[in-house]
Structure formats: structure tokens, C-alpha cells
């Protein structure tokens, strides 16, 4: 409920131009790196069946084996090939991340639009956002999981429910700043309906921002999925990176030499993919509206 976002200082036009030019260089570079990472991951996810040496569900080798030419990253506690698990895990982690972030963006944008455009309704909506933000996360999670059941779809829904609120705030701040712009006021005074103004004038101006939010939220969603799986609150039976870590922890891999091939890769992959989306999101955000940083 902080108003940091909306009260951020407005640098003078000259500053924006000046900094814009300077920033663009490395912002673009970082964005490109992020883009490449995301592209690689998406390719791996799509081509998983081709790239993976084994079916990740298949008990392909001796349980707990160290890396060998047959199993480049060794096998897990039931003899499943860890490399194949990593490759297929890309699918689950990316899907969960992207879909959950998209859902969160949708909810957040709608609430943010309404909240910013209709001030009275907006006040109520924003108090709702506040409540969501201060509720204790863990029990909320268990309640949701209990009523929705465990499945990948529900993990997506749960994550979306948990992360839409900040997006709503950012979008609302943007809409608030738009709502008083001359052309919006003009459109209204010319008798344009709310729906029309929202659709024609407000939405297009916030869409880019929403996309930036979405990309950044994807990174958060991937992290969240891994934490959920690790705590046993996701679905450990899904082949995601988080669940690989859950099993590594459950079967003591952190304390054996196996951490090098069982613990490090999934953690690095989570970091890597979250980084990819975060860089992309950062670049987009700087480009779209350098004044709106998520707090």
C-alpha cells in the first residue's frame, strides 16, 4: 500500500533523454542476454523428447549412481536419469512460470485498470490488494492446495493467486497517471464511454507495462514453484527442478558427493532461468517506463 511508486520523482525531460541514451547500451545488452537465455530454455523445453537421453520416468539405471557416459548427471534415488529429468524439468518449470505469471498479469491488470480508472471502486480494490499482501503466505497456500488439490494446473493457480497483487498496484499507478492526461479528459468530455476510453486509450498505454510485469513475474513464479516443491507443498511427483531438489534433500544428497550432480544443476537452472526472465523484464521495464520499479 505504499505509494512509493506513484510519488516517485519525475526527472526533467533532459535527464530522461540523457540517461536514456546512456542506459540503452547496457540495458539492451542485458535484455539480449536475458532473451537468449529464455530462448535457449524454451528450445530445450520444446525439444525435450529429442534432447533427453531417457524418459525421465523410466528407471533407467542403478539408483544413486554417479555420473557416467550413460548417465551424464548420474541417477536419482530410483534410478531415473537426472540429465533427462533436468531437460524435462524445463518444460514443467517454464510452463508453470509462464502460465502462472500470465494469469497473475491478467488478474493484476484487470484489478489495476479498474482500481486506477474508477477511483471509488479502486479504493476498495486496492484495500483488497493490501489484504492479500499482508496475509500469511504459508497457511494461505495450504488452504488453497487443500481445496484445489495437487496438480500442475492447481500449482499454477495457487502461484497466480499469490503473486497478482503487486502487478495490480503497478498497473493502477500507471492508470492513475494516465487518467488525468489531457487526451483522456478530452475523450471523456467528448462523451466517450468508460469502456471505450479504457479500451482505446488506457489499455494500450498500460499493455507494455503489463508485459514487463509479466516477464518479471515469470522469474518470481519459477522461484516460487521450486520453493513450493521443495517444501513438499507443490507436487513432488511432477518432474520439475524444484521437485528434483525435494528428492535430493529427502534422500540426503546435500550431504553426499552427489550434491555436485544432483543438487547443483537444478539450483543453477532455477537461477539461470529466473535470471533470464529477470534480465528480460529489467530491460523491458527500463525501456517502457524507467520510473516504475517494483519495490
Amino acid at each position: 500500500m505504499t505509494t512509493t511508486v506513484s510519488t516517485d520523482p519525475e526527472p526533467g525531460p533532459a535527464a530522461v533523454v540523457r540517461r536514456g541514451r546512456r542506459l540503452r547500451d547496457h540495458t539492451t545488452a542485458l535484455g539480449a542476454i536475458g532473451g537468449v537465455i529464455v530462448l535457449v530454455l524454451v528450445t530445450v523445453a520444446v525439444l525435450a523428447p529429442v534432447l533427453a537421453p531417457y524418459d525421465p520416468a523410466e528407471r533407467a539405471g542403478t539408483p544413486f549412481s554417479s555420473p557416467s557416459p550413460d548417465h551424464l548427471l548420474g541417477t536419482n534415488d530410483v534410478g531415473q536419469d537426472l540429465l533427462s529429468e533436468m531437460i524435462y524439468g524445463t518444460r514443467v518449470s517454464l510452463t508453470v512460470g509462464i502460465v502462472a505469471a500470465a494469469a497473475a498479469m491478467l488478474i493484476g491488470t484487470v484489478v489495476g485498470l479498474i482500481g486506477g480508472y474508477f477511483p471509488r471502486l479502486g479504493a476498495v480494490a486496492m484495500r483488497g490488494v493490501d489484504v492479500v499482501l499482508i496475509l500469511p503466505f504459508l497457511p494461505l497456500l495450504i488452504v488453497l492446495a487443500a481445496y484445489l488439490g495437487r496438480s500442475i494446473v492447481n500449482t499454477v493457480i495457487i502461484i497466480a493467486i499469490l503473486i497478482w497483487a503487486p502487478t495490480a498496484r503497478v498497473i493502477r499507478a500507471q492508470v492513475l497517471s494516465l487518467a488525468n492526461r489531457d487526451y483522456i479528459v478530452a475523450a471523456r468530455s467528448m462523451g466517450a464511454g468508460h469502456g471505450y476510453v479504457l479500451w482505446r486509450h488506457v489499455l494500450p498505454k498500460t499493455m507494455l507495462l503489463a508485459i514487463g510485469e509479466f516477464v518479471a513475474a515469470t522469474s518470481g513464479a519459477i522461484l516460487l514453484e521450486s520453493s513450493l516443491s521443495f517444501l513438499g507443498l507443490g507436487d513432488p511427483l511432477q518432474e520439475s527442478w524444484g521437485s528434483t531438489l525435494y528428492w535430493a534433500q529427502a534422500r540426503g544428497a546435500f550431504l553426499t558427493p552427489a550434491w555436485k550432480w544432483w543438487v547443483l544443476p537444478p539450483g543453477l537452472l532455477i537461477m539461470f532461468s529466473a535470471l533470464g526472465f529477470a534480465l528480460l523484464g529489467y530491460a523491458l521495464e527500463q525501456r517502457i517506463n524507467p520510473r516504475l520499479r517494483r519495490s
Binding site: 495450504i142 487443500a146 488439490g149 495437487r150 513438499g232 511427483l237
Partner: peptide, 9 residues
């Protein structure tokens, strides 16, 4: 179909 659920659930 194996479903993992929280213990109390």
C-alpha cells in the same frame, strides 16, 4: 493416479 497431499489433508 498418485496424488501427494499435505499430511493433515
Amino acid at each position: 493416479e498418485v496424488s501427494s497431499v499435505e499430511m493433515q489433508t
